[in-house]
Design a protein around this nucleic acid. Structure first.
Length: 433
RNA sequence: GACAUGUUAGCUCAGUUGGUUAGAGCAUCGGUUUGUGGUACCGAGGGUCAUGGGUUCGAGCCCCAUACGUGUCCCCA
């Protein structure tokens, strides 16, 4: 009985033409993370379920992939939903870690979401995180934004904007409109939505959530003013928590200026809320304003209480997370990826038994010189061997037929310009290096 | 979860008010050319029209059900 070949919804296979690009993107990230002093770290794909739940918020908790193993028992397992929570769990377990500690981590994560590939949304995807634990300094928050900016710039992503806000400001606004902290998420949600829909829609939502009319009106009056950070500071002068949040962002922005991050690529955005519960301070998210359908390329922020929630020391933390799959999808849609199918530089043709040993010796010599070399395994017609070379966009082909073997030379053909020459092995190696 | 929409060859799709034997492009393989690709020409293979039922003299097309997919919203990387 044959089983239909099919792939899990929201998961993907990556063939070389995609993987070569994905590896390059990861390499840019890795290099940049190291440049800023982050060291590599990995945690398991699998965690105990109770380590993950209650950190992200109700909606997100439902999207955690639970593993069907000892359901309901204390050691019920799940696939990790992000890298921040497992990292925090690991830090909480490592009592003698010298602080501040900076790590980067690039691994797949899983979410039981409805996939929307066009928007770069999948069930299995790579997160590439840099986090620092053990410092409250806004310098670190600024570094997170700087590193995000540097990576996206190096990948030549045009016109991205890092939106920045502060949870303390959102808490302050909630107080300002006369609600207690239990309503922060409703308020955030409403503000966040305002990006996409009209006020009356947002108002309707808030009414549905039993928010008092006076609070809704006060929120409307505040948002309609579209205040700059400075003016917001005056408006919210009686709210202590908001004052703190604004001061933090002003400090953060002063560091971004010193780090030479162009102002075109970041901005204060009061409508940025972020859904995950664990954020406590500055938050940020990267969007492509010219491609609003595409989900955010990056998200991050400060999460000072998370590590303490695992017991033990209360260690402050901040991090940035770049979405490999979002970035890759955006680059595909923006036509930023060349048509690469292989990393092979030269194909050595196969002329059959008489010349086989000479051809294989050539293959060995080329590889010994670090030239990426592929040997065509069957003595097919040359037409077919050239066709293979062409289809895989291998730039060069070498031939040792009987003529070449007698003359002790190698024919080298450049597939791009069709030039063909006979060379000695030494000259060939020089040419291909 | 809500709404919309789709399923015909390996892939992308066409298929008229229901009417003979199911169409194209690309891809694959072969030939023109047994030591030369990307161009050209010739030829070949490849389809229980998602599944099950119904209407009809007759269904890829109409009706019902099921499965699966896709898009948007919500939320996110």
């Amino acid at each position: 009985m044959k089983i239909q070949a099919r792939i899990f919804k929201g998961a993907r296979d990556f063939f070389p033409e995609q993987m070569l690009h994905r590896e390059r993107i990861l390499q840019v990230m890795r290099t940049t993370f190291k440049k800023y002093g982050f060291a590599p770290l990995e945690t398991p794909a699998i965690e105990y379920l109770d380590v993950l739940t209650g950190k992200y918020g109700e909606d997100a908790d439902r999207l955690i992939y639970k593993l069907n193993y000892k359901v309901g028992q204390k050691d019920e397992a799940a696939l990790h939903y992000d890298l921040t929570v497992p990292f925090s769990r690991a830090v909480a377990m490592q009592t003698d870690l010298p602080l501040p500690f900076k790590r980067y981590q690039m691994q797949p994560v899983w979410r039981a979401d409805r996939p929307q590939p066009h928007q770069g949304r999948f069930r299995e995807f790579y997160q590439c995180d840099a986090d620092c634990v053990g410092s409250e300094s806004m310098i670190i928050d600024a570094e997170m934004i700087a590193i995000t900016y540097e990576i996206l710039s190096q990948l030549n992503i045009p016109d991205f904007v890092i939106k920045i806000n502060n949870r303390k400001i959102l808490n302050g606004i909630t107080q300002y409109i006369g609600l207690d902290n239990s309503h922060v998420s409703e308020v955030c949600n409403a503000i966040d939505k305002l990006d996409k829909v009209e006020w009356n829609e947002v108002e309707k939502d808030l009414i549905d959530k039993y928010i008092a009319a006076t609070s809704i009106e006060k929120l409307h009056q505040l948002l309609i003013k579209d205040l700059s950070l400075d003016l917001l500071k005056t408006e919210l002068n009686s709210i202590e928590i908001a004052q703190q949040g604004i001061a933090e962002l002003q400090e953060l922005f002063s560091y971004l200026a010193i780090f030479n991050i162009p102002e075109t690529h970041y901005k204060f955005d009061i409508s940025l809320a972020r859904g995950l519960d664990y954020y406590t301070g500055p938050i940020f998210e990267t969007k492509l304003p010219k491609h609003p359908h595409m989900g955010s390329l990056n998200g991050g922020g400060r999460y000072n209480g998370l590590i303490a929630s695992f017991g033990g020391k209360d260690i402050p933390a901040v991090g940035t997370s770049l979405g490999l799959d979002r970035i890759f999808t955006a680059m595909q849609q923006l036509n930023l990826l060349d048509d690469v199918k292989t990393s092979t530089k030269v194909l050595v043709g196969n002329f059959g038994e008489v010349t086989l040993a000479a051809s294989l010796k050539l293959v060995t010599d080329l590889r010994a010189n670090n030239i990426n070399t592929e040997f065509y395994p069957d003595a097919d017609k040359l037409k077919k061997q050239f066709g293979y070379c062409d289809k895989k966009k291998i730039p060069f082909m070498c031939i040792i037929g009987e003529e070449e073997m007698i003359a002790n030379v190698i024919t080298l053909k450049n597939l791009q310009n069709s030039e063909q020459t006979k060379l000695s092995l030494t000259d060939l190696i020089v040419r291909l290096k």
